[in-house]
Amino acid sequence: MKKTMKWTLLTLALGVVLVSAGCHKKSAPAPATPPPPPPAAPRATLTVSPESITSGGSATLSWTSTDATSVTISGIGAVASTGTQTVAPGTSTTYHLTATGPGGSVDATARLTVTAAPMAAPMAPDYTEEQLFAQSVKDIYFDYDKYDLRATDKAIIDADAAFLKAHPSIRFTIEGHCDERGSTDYNLALGDQRANAARSALVNAGIPASQIRVISYGKEKPFCTTSDESCWQQNRRAHFVYGQK
């Protein structure tokens, strides 16, 4: 692909040099006797419409030429001096027209860009409600032995509430979790209070309590199991889960 373009440019450059050199040559010697009129140099245009298609689509090549005895287009072959042709390449293609006549030859090119078929992603119509929930509703994290929301969590709760308001049919569960330190039983109570703190914040933000179920897992279902603060922080959370088992 790149190679083709390189060669095309090279050919084009050579053509321009030759043409201009020819001109110079023509104008340089000026004999006194009137010479016969030189044959007119050929002219050509090549366009493609549209210039960009998606894979599987088609475009129309249009070309015109004057003072040419033969016209060829790369990939197509000899064509009439003026015409149109429907093309449907699989990849981006540069069409290269060469018009040759008694007065010389001229090139014209047109590039057709082909983009890949559209992915589902940008369209996002077939996400399940559960996937949207998982993407949109963010968990809340807590300090050690604490169950009150941090000031920075307000924005998260607001965003969570905004999504939940837009999806009033979603029923969901808030799981309260704790890190591995401390007593099993005390952590069950702490997890309960973390989940209920998140629940209260959502209810205050206008989410009906009937949409929400709360369960504490204490330290029974950790998200990670190494004994360091970054892991413990991962485990001190109110985790939002789609549905109510």
Binding site: D185, A189, D192
Partner: peptide, 27 residues
Amino acid sequence: HGPDVSPVWNPKTNAQIAWVSGRTGLP
């Protein structure tokens, strides 16, 4: 307010209960 967990009876009398409370912070 705060966690109250892990009650146990005084087995001699059943008149007292010991338990854990986080009412002032740490349990």
